[in-house]
């Protein structure tokens, strides 16, 4: 390939070209990305990061009014934005100013309850935030059919995670030793449904992030009810956690091959006090958590379209406090 960058592009992207090179930049510039549910602060962070990186087109989908409470953490909405604008419109206006070289579009309407394959087909990557798992599961399945990379992210209180499904993803390593021709590798991703039904008996409790259990319990709830849990639902969620833990212990005890070591056994209160509560009640996003999660997630979106760098498979967790950002691989590849 020749040098297709315009002079303006070369000047603005100079510093990142020195990080990831011209070929990768050109792949980014051909990428079409959808972010649906962009009220959240984490969506705003990702949108900013990938718009700065210079993707080809970035489409936003969120018809909530831009001055709504839910969009309080979206810094892309200017204080003097027209109240009549949607979150998508107000965010797109700022993103366009931030990087006029990217084709930014605010799409009309909200996320359809039933995925429309014709619509999704127009993107290489779809990121959905602020939707219950009932919706996410449908979109993950639809994207899988189309081969469109699917991400979802959630940041509540001090805890946060994102999920990635790149299906069968071919990539070259981020860096190879000088003189070595990079070899392609394939990373196969489980579906969201499979990831969410990973039996707890297979998890090594000592090394597993506590949010794995929280997300599972909430996902079960959301996929049954089609809505987010509230404070009133906490007892039911805790009950569900105890059931899953009991099942896991029973399954481990029945395991003919000796089963897991005692220290890896799931305890009854698998989730430390407060973690579930904070996740369920803590609707308030914390900006620094969004910044961290949005930064790591944007890197993954860029990896998905550039096919460069080993991707995170398939959950990433970050909580304020311990500052550890941890990758968990859940689910079976079918």
């Amino acid at each position: 390939m020749g040098n297709d960058l315009t002079e303006a592009e070369a000047k603005v992207y100079d510093r990142q070209l020195r990080v990831w090179g011209l070929e990768l930049q050109k792949r980014l510039m051909a990428a079409r990305i959808l972010i649906a549910g962009c009220s959240s602060g984490v969506a705003a962070e990702v949108a900013k990061n990938i718009a700065l990186a210079g993707v080809g087109s970035l489409s936003l989908l969120d018809d909530a009014p831009c001055k709504s409470e839910a969009a309080a953490c979206n810094f892309l909405i200017s204080a003097d934005a027209d109240q009549a604008q949607s979150v998508a419109e107000a965010s797109a206006a700022t993103l366009h100013e931030m990087n006029p070289l990217v084709n930014i579009a605010a799409l009309p309407g909200g996320l359809p309850a039933i995925p429309d394959p014709e619509f999704l087909r127009g993107f290489e990557v779809v990121l959905i935030t602020s939707a219950p798992f009932s919706t996410l599961l449908q979109y993950d399945a639809a994207c899988r059919q189309l081969g469109v990379a699917f991400f979802t992210a959630s940041s509540r209180g001090s805890t946060s995670f994102f999920f990635a499904n790149l299906h069968s993803h071919e990539y070259t390593p981020l860096e190879t030793p000088a003189g070595v021709v990079p070899t392609k590798a394939i990373s196969a991703f489980p579906s969201l449904a499979s990831a969410l039904s990973q039996p707890w008996k297979t998890l090594r409790a000592r090394y597993t992030h506590k949010l794995v259990y929280v997300v599972r319990v909430c996902a079960d709830f959301e996929s049954h009810t089609g809505r987010f849990p509230t404070t009133e639902d906490l007892p039911a969620l805790q009950q569900r956690a105890r059931e899953l833990a009991a099942d896991a212990r029973a399954a481990a005890a029945a395991d003919a091959n000796g089963g897991p070591l005692p220290r890896d056994l799931i305890s009854e209160d698998v989730m430390p006090a407060g973690v579930l509560e904070e996740y369920v009640i803590g609707n308030a996003e914390l900006a620094p958590v969004n910044a961290v999660l949005g930064g790591v997630l944007a890197n993954e979106v860029l990896k998905a379209v550039s096919h460069k760098g080993e991707p995170v498979k398939n959950f990433f967790f970050f909580s304020l406090g311990d500052n550890v950002g941890l990758v968990e691989t859940l689910g079976e590849i079918v």
Partner: peptide
Amino acid sequence: IIHAIATTNAIVGGL
């Protein structure tokens, strides 16, 4: 010239 990208700075700002 120092190599620089937005995402790393965003994460560091959050931390």
